[in-house]
Design a protein around this nucleic acid. Structure first.
Length: 858
RNA sequence: GGGUGUAUAGCUCAGUUGGCUAGAGCGUUACGUUGACAUCGUAGAGGUCGGUGGUUCGAGCCCACUUACACCCACCA
C-alpha cells in the first residue's frame, strides 16, 4: 500500500489537522509564513524556507504545542505592477490609457491566479498550515492595520511629507527606497572638462562621469585647503556650452585626491551635490523629465544647442554634449573609468536622483528600540552573527521613503483639500468630518512601499489593530521567524520596529536566517546559467519526502546551501532503505509483536535501544537549535548504520531462537520512534509506514507525540560495541587476505543467560545457508572477551598474519613512545581526566603490543 | 573605503567550551551479493585542516599578520 501525499494532505487539510486549537491550554507555538510575492511560481529558495518552517511546526506539534503555521501572500507592489503592466503592454493595453481602476482589475485577476498557484505549491510541499487563516497583504484586515499604523505614526509626528531628492526610477516612474537601489559596477568614462574662470585667464578642470548633468550645474566645489584652487573660491566659473556663470565654493566634500580636485555641483541630480548646494545656497535646477529626458523648459538659459537636446534620453544627450565640448575645446581628456552606478532593484533602470515630494517615516527611535531588544536577547538571531549586520544598518538608519507612485498597493490614507490642506484618516468619510462638510477632498494618489504592510504582518494577520481579536490575544507574539538573510533590512527589521512601536513587544523571539540556495557546485542559480531547479519537477520525480529530506540535510548553519539532483537521489535512497527495513521486519512478523518487555531484554535489544535513546537526545538538541543538518544526520546514521547494518544483521542470528519475541518487540519500539523522529521531515512516507506497521491510521500520525526515550539496561551494551569492532577487524583481515571467496563470513552473536556472558562465533557459511541458521553446533570457535580476533581465523596463512602483526607492532611502538612523551609533558599541567585518558590509551597500546608480540613469537 | 563570512579528502561539507590516531556523504579501488535492499554489503586508498608567526603540556579550533574567494554596506568627481 502506498499513500499519495497529495491525498493525505488534502484529507488532513479538509479535516482540520493543521489547525491550532486555541481552546486547548497547551503552550502556543506560532510561525508566520514569509509571504511569497504574487509575482510567479515558488522557487527552490521558497521550498527551503517553507520546509524549514514546516519541519519545526510538525516537531513542535508532536512535542505537545498548540501550533499555528499561518500562510499567506504578499502583494509586492512594484514587482507585481511591473509584471502585470508588462503583460498588458504585450497585448497592446497601456496602463495610462485604461486608468487606475481598470488596471487594478487586471492586477487582482493576476493576483488571484498567482496566489492560487502559490498556495497549491505550498500544499504540495506538505506545508501544514492552517488555510482557514490564510492572509494577503492587501486584504481587508491588512488595509485596516495599514491605515491604523499610518495614522498613528502620522499623529505621532513620525510620518511626514517632505520635498527631497529621492531615488527615482525613470522607467517605473516611482520613487524607490535606498534599499531598493542596487549598485552595479559599470564601465564608463571620466570626462575632464575645462571651465573657464570669469574675468581671468585661468580655468578650472572638473572631472565627471555624467557630463550631461552639466546643464544643471550651479557651482564648482573645491576643497578650502587645496592650495591649487584656494584663490578661486568666491569667483565664478563659466559653464561651457551655456555660458552660465556659476559660483566656485569651498567645501570639504571636494576631495583633493579624487578626480581633478574640483567637482562640478549639480544639486538636482546628485545626493552629495544636493547637500553641497544647500550649504552654499546654490540654485537647484532640474534638467530632466520624470522619464529622465532632457527638459529644456526648466533650463532658463538654454541656447539653441541645448534646445536641440529637448526630449532626448540622458544617455543620448551625454554623447551630444561630449561632442559639443570636444568641438568647443573644453574637453581636456577622457579616461576609462569603472564606477558604481545605481540601478533599480526591480526592472533594473538606472536610478536618477530627483527632487520630489514624498512621504517619509522617521524610524530612528524605533531603530534604537529594536537594537535594544536584540541586545537584551528578547529577540535572538540564529546564527548570531547576523545581529551585527542588523545593528550596523539600524545604527545608521535614514528616514524611510514610504510613498510610491504606483497604483498597486495600499493607497495612502491622506486626503487633500483643494487648497492643499492634508487630513489623514481611515476613510473619505472620516476625513470629511475632519475637514468639514462640503469641503472638496481628494485622496493622495500614491501608495505605500510594499514593506510597510508586510512590516505589520505578524500582528495584522492575527487581527491587530483589534487587540481583543482572539487570535491576536492568543497567538501574538509569535515564536520563530524563518526567512532568508537577504530581507533582514527590508522585512525583519521593519517588523521588529513596528511591533515594538505598536505593541511594546517583540513580534517573535527567534529569527532563523538561512542563506541562498545555490547549485551543486556553489554557483548561483540563474536562468542564464541554466542551473535553475524547479522544486515541483523535483517533487514529481523524486517524491516530496525525498525533496524535504534533502532540504533538511542542507539547512544548517545559516550559510548558503548547495543543492543538486544527486543529493535528492541520496534522499530517495534513504527513504528506500527505510522502506526496506520496515519490509524486513514486517516479514519477520513485527506487526504481531507484543509490547516490549524490558525485563526480557537481551544485549542486542538493549544495545539498539541505547543507541535510540542517544539518537533521540542528539536529534532533539539539533532541532531545538535549528540544526536541521545535524537532525538529519543523526537519524540517517541511526537508521542506516545502527538499525539496519548492525541491529538487523545481529538479530538475524537470533531470530530463530528463544529471543525472537523480545527482538521483534524491541524492533517494533525502535521503528515507531524512528518514524516519529522522521515525521517532521518526511511526513508522508513516515505516515504510510506507520499505518503499514499497524501503529494506527496514517492520517493520525501527525498527531502522535514525539519520540521518547525508554529506560534501558546498558550494562552489557558495550559487549555489542566490542563485538562489532571484532567483526569489523575480522572482515578487515579477511578482505586483506582475500579469505572466504564464495563464502560468507557470518558472525553470530549469542547471549547465554546461564553464565551472563555474551559469546560470538565466527562461522564460515556457504552463501545458500540462511544467516538465521547459526546455532550452537555451528560455532567453530568461541571467543572470550578481549581474546584477540586473529586467533579466531584458522584459515589465515600464519606467515601473513605474522607479517601483518610486525607492521602493526611498529605503529604501536611509535604510538607508545608518543604517548609517553605527551604524558611526561602534561604531568602537573593538564587536567587530571585528560592525563587519565592518555594513560589508559597507553595501557591499551602496551597490551596490544604484548598480543602482537605473542603472535609474532608464536 | 568600511564590514561580515568562507578556506578541512578528488567533489560538497560536518567538526560543540582547545584534549586520545581529524569525520560524513558522493566519487574512487578491491571483493562479495538470487534471502529486507529500484541495489546492497564489506574492506581499502585518499588530509603537513589556505600561509607565516605566536599562546599552551596540547591548536583544525585561541591571538597577530597574510593570501584567495564570496557577500553586505557606503557620498556616482
Amino acid at each position: 500500500m502506498t499513500i499519495n501525499p497529495d491525498d493525505l494532505y488534502k484529507f488532513q487539510e479538509d479535516n482540520g489537522y493543521f489547525k491550532p486549537n486555541p481552546e486547548s491550554n497547551k503552550k502556543t507555538f506560532t510561525i508566520m509564513i514569509p509571504p511569497p510575492n504574487v509575482t510567479g511560481q515558488l522557487h527552490l529558495g521558497h521550498a527551503f524556507t517553507m520546509t524549514m518552517q514546516d519541519i519545526i511546526i510538525r516537531y513542535k506539534r508532536m512535542m505537545g504545542f498548540d501550533c499555528l503555521l499561518l500562510p499567506g501572500t504578499d502583494h509586492a507592489a512594484i514587482a507585481t505592477q511591473m509584471i502585470v503592466e508588462k503583460q498588458l503592454t504585450q497585448k497592446g493595453i497601456y496602463r495610462r490609457e485604461i486608468g487606475r481602476a481598470k488596471f487594478l482589475d487586471y492586477v487582482w485577476e493576476w493576483k488571484a491566479e498567482c496566489a492560487g498557484n502559490i498556495t497549491r505549491q505550498l500544499r504540495r510541499l506538505g506545508y501544514s498550515s492552517d488555510w482557514s487563516r490564510e492572509r494577503f497583504t492587501m486584504d481587508e484586515g491588512m488595509s485596516e492595520a495599514v491605515k491604523e499604523a499610518f495614522i498613528r505614526l502620522y499623529n505621532d509626528g513620525l510620518i511626514y511629507k517632505a520635498n527631497r531628492l529621492v531615488n527615482w526610477d525613470p522607467v517605473m516612474l516611482t520613487s524607490v527606497s535606498d534599499l531598493e537601489v542596487i549598485m552595479k559596477e559599470t564601465a564608463g568614462s571620466m570626462w575632464h572638462i575645462r571651465y573657464d574662470i570669469d574675468g581671468s585667464d585661468e580655468s578650472i578642470i572638473v572631472a565627471t562621469t555624467r557630463p550631461e548633468t552639466m546643464l544643471g550645474d550651479s557651482g564648482v566645489a573645491v576643497n578650502p585647503n587645496d592650495e591649487r584652487f584656494k584663490h578661486l573660491i568666491g569667483k565664478k566659473a563659466i559653464l561651457p556650452i551655456i555660458g552660465r556663470k556659476i559660483e566656485i565654493v569651498g567645501d570639504d566634500y571636494a576631495d583633493m585626491t579624487k578626480g581633478t580636485g574640483a567637482v562640478k555641483i549639480t544639486p538636482a541630480h546628485d545626493f552629495n551635490d544636493y547637500e553641497v548646494g544647500k550649504r552654499h545656497n546654490l540654485p537647484v535646477m532640474n534638467i530632466f523629465t520624470e522619464t529622465a529626458k532632457i527638459d529644456v523648459k526648466q533650463i532658463y538659459d538654454a541656447n539653441d544647442f541645448v534646445k536641440s537636446l529637448d526630449g532626448l534620453d540622458r544617455f543620448e544627450a551625454r554623447k551630444l554634449i561630449v561632442e559639443k565640448l570636444k568641438e568647443l575645446g573644453n574637453l581636456v581628456k577622457i579616461e576609462p573609468y569603472s564606477h558604481q552606478v545605481p540601478h533599480a532593484e526591480r526592472g533594473g533602470a538606472v536610478i536618477e536622483p530627483r527632487l520630489t515630494e514624498q512621504w517619509y517615516c522617521n524610524v530612528s527611535e524605533m531603530a534604537k528600540k529594536a537594537i535594544e531588544f536584540v541586545k537584551e536577547e528578547k529577540i535572538k538571531f540564529v546564527p548570531k552573527m547576523w545581529e551585527n549586520t542588523f545593528f550596523s544598518w539600524l545604527e545608521n538608519i535614514q528616514p524611510w521613503c514610504i510613498s510610491r507612485q504606483l497604483w498597486w498597493g495600499h493607497q495612502i490614507p491622506a486626503y487633500y483639500t483643494d487648497d492643499g490642506k492634508v487630513f489623514v484618516a481611515k476613510s473619505l468619510a472620516e476625513a470629511q468630518k475632519m475637514a468639514g462638510e462640503g469641503v472638496h477632498l481628494t485622496q493622495d494618489e500614491d501608495s505605500l512601499d510594499t514593506w510597510f504592510s508586510s512590516g505589520l504582518w505578524p500582528m495584522s494577520t492575527l487581527g491587530w489593530p483589534n487587540t481583543e481579536a482572539p487570535d491576536y490575544a492568543h497567538y501574538f507574539p509569535t515564536s520563530t521567524l524563518i526567512t532568508g538573510f537577504d530581507i533582514i533590512f527590508f522585512w525583519v527589521a521593519r517588523m521588529i520596529m513596528f511591533s515594538i512601536y505598536f505593541t511594546g513587544k517583540a513580534p517573535f523571539d527567534t529569527v532563523v536566517l538561512h542563506g541562498l540556495v545555490r547549485d551543486e557546485h556553489g554557483q548561483k542559480m540563474s536562468k542564464t546559467k541554466g542551473n535553475v531547479i524547479n522544486p515541483l519537477e523535483l517533487i514529481d520525480e523524486f517524491g516530496i519526502d525525498a525533496v524535504r529530506w534533502t532540504i533538511c540535510t542542507l539547512s544548517g548553519q545559516g550559510r548558503d546551501m548547495n543543492f543538486g539532483r544527486s543529493l535528492v537521489e541520496n534522499g530517495r535512497k534513504f527513504i528506500t532503505k527505510l522502506r526496506n527495513a520496515v519490509n524486513f521486519w514486517e516479514q519477520k512478523g513485527v506487526k504481531n509483536a507484543g509490547d516490549f518487555d524490558a525485563s526480557k531484554s537481551v544485549a542486542s535489544t538493549n544495545w539498539i535501544l541505547d543507541k535510540m535513546n542517544k539518537a533521540i537526545d542528539s536529534a532533539t538538541v539539533a532541532i531545538e537549535n535549528y540544526r536541521y543538518d545535524e537532525y538529519a544526520q543523526t537519524l540517517y546514521h541511526f537508521v542506516w548504520d545502527d538499525f539496519c547494518d548492525n541491529f538487523i544483521e545481529l538479530s538475524k542470528t537470533e531470530m530463530d531462537g528463544e529471543n525472537k519475541d523480545v527482538i521483534l518487540s524491541g524492533a517494533k519500539l525502535v521503528l515507531k520512534n524512528i518514524l516519529k523522529m522522521l515525521q517532521p521531515v518526511i511526513p508522508f512516507v513516515s505516515a504510510e509506514l506507520y499505518e503499514e506497521l499497524g501503529f494506527g491510521p496514517a492520517k493520525d500520525f501527525i498527531k502522535e507525540s514525539f519520540a521518547e526515550k525508554v529506560s534501558v539496561d546498558t550494562s552489557n551494551t558495550s559487549d555489542i560495541d566490542w563485538m562489532l569492532n571484532v567483526i569489523s577487524a575480522i572482515r578487515n583481515i579477511r578482505a586483506e587476505h582475500n579469505i572466504g571467496f564464495k563464502t560468507e563470513l557470518c558472525v553470530a552473536f549469542k547471549s547465554i543467560p546461564e553464565n551472563g556472558k555474551n559469546y560470538i562465533s565466527v562461522i564460515e557459511t556457504h552463501t545458500n545457508t540462511k544467516c538465521g541458521d547459526a546455532t550452537d553446533d555451528m560455532i567453530s570457535s568461541v571467543i572470550d572477551e578481549k581474546t584477540t580476533l586473529l586467533i579466531a581465523l584458522p584459515s589465515v596463512d600464519k606467515n601473513e598474519v605474522i607479517a601483518k602483526a610486525k607492521a602493526e607492532l611498529q605503529d604501536v611502538e611509535k604510538r607508545i613512545a608518543s604517548l609517553n612523551a605527551q604524558i611526561a609533558k602534561m604531568e602537573g599541567k593538564a587536567p587530571a581526566q585528560v592525563i587519565e585518558d592518555r594513560k589508559k590509551s597507553l595501557a591499551d597500546a602496551i597490551s596490544k603490543k604484548t598480543q602482537l608480540e605473542e603472535i609474532i613469537g608464536g
